[in-house]
């Protein structure tokens, strides 16, 4: 075949640059597409994500500037408003819109002001859990051997503690149950799942060829962990964290309901109060409950959407 070029020096580079040239013009709109970018594109076209993101955004605004939503003071015991006054559904966004509770406080204002505590507890616990569980999981998974054996048994031990019971026992020993205290208690008991997920992901990633390649180049442990292992192992942790954020909010409410939660305005406290007068004034319990359910649902939906975007195979 005389007409076919036999020389690699000519054939190979010219071939690829020719093909490359063709591709550049075709691929122009998607010049760099990182995996995170792909996931983000996926998310934006997912209505579950849009709904949950809008809800969460609204909740965040509520938590940051509750004054935008209500003029009423959640702690103002307005005895002029009769004890257990019924909601005035015509008075949109007014203090008496959703009625008053047993101590004459606006149910609407308390539902708005309760957002901050719930989100702070949820987010704070999640951040702490991801750091604590992530680090423990990464160390156990990456170093293996006896380190893994010790850390894994430690994880098992903590997993054996019933989450709510453990939190109740711990919080019971505090009289001043501020937000950091509640966060610390929840995170102390909640890191195990993240650690397990992280450990599993790290074990998968550390045996891949690109980690071997980095080692072969002489990369140090720090570079391997933070450049190669972590970015590829973090995705399942993000999913778990997003879903459990909602769970921690629920847990905080449960603890407050049991009288072992936050001191101050919180949905859990209001639900607890409302429970006492549920026969005569259902609204006291109803509205904080709705807020709580919607918030938890929004985070669980967000986690679900993120899971689908990061790992399209599960769809």
């Amino acid at each position: 075949m005389p007409e076919l070029t036999k020389s690699a020096d000519e054939a190979v580079p010219s071939a690829t640059t020719a093909a490359a040239g063709a591709e550049v013009s075709e691929d122009k709109p998607e010049k760099t597409r990182s995996l995170w970018g792909d996931a983000w594109r996926d998310l934006r076209s997912n209505w579950i994500f849009i709904v949950s993101a809008v809800l969460i955004l609204l909740l965040l605004v509520m938590a940051a500037w509750p004054g935008l939503f209500t003029n009423a003071d959640p702690n103002n015991k307005d005895l002029a408003n009769h004890y257990l006054q019924h909601p005035n559904y015509g008075h949109w966004f007014q203090a008496d819109w959703l009625g008053y509770d047993a101590q004459g406080r606006s149910v609407y204002a308390r539902a708005i002001y309760g957002t901050r505590a719930s989100l702070l507890v949820g987010a704070g616990t999640t951040v702490l859990v991801v750091i604590l569980g992530g680090v423990i999981g990464m160390i156990a998974g990456y170093f293996g051997g006896w380190v893994d054996a010790v850390l894994s048994r430690l994880t098992d031990m903590f997993m054996g503690i019933p989450f709510l019971l453990g939190a109740m026992v711990m919080l019971n020993s505090f009289t001043d149950r501020s937000i950091p205290v509640v966060i610390a208690a929840l995170a102390f008991l909640g890191w195990t799942q993240t650690a397990r997920v992280m450990r599993g992901a790290v074990i998968t990633v550390k045996s891949t060829d690109y980690v071997q390649a980095a080692k072969a180049l002489g990369a140090g442990t720090g570079r391997i962990l933070f450049r190669h292992v972590m970015p590829n192992a973090i995705a399942p942790v993000i999913v778990v964290a997003t879903i459990s954020l909602g769970v921690y909010i629920g847990a905080e409410a449960t603890l407050s309901f049991l009288g072992l939660g936050l001191n101050g305005v919180s949905w859990g406290n209001d639900i607890s109060d409302g429970g006492n007068s549920i026969r005569v004034a259902q609204w006291i319990m109803l509205y904080p409950s709705i807020m709580l359910s919607v918030t938890v649902l929004a985070f669980i939906m967000l986690g679900e959407a993120v899971r689908n975007a990061l790992d399209p195979k599960t769809r």
Binding site: E3, L4, A8, A11, V12, A15, T16, A18
Partner: peptide
């Protein structure tokens, strides 16, 4: 001696070349 190599890449099935699909690689 040197191996003969078909130049270029297998086609992207999203954008099959017009005409004969092998034309960009064909001598």
């Amino acid at each position: 001696q040197e191996l003969f190599a078909i130049k270029g890449l297998p086609p992207n099935l999203l954008r099959i070349p017009s005409g004969c699909a092998f034309n960009p690689r064909c001598p």
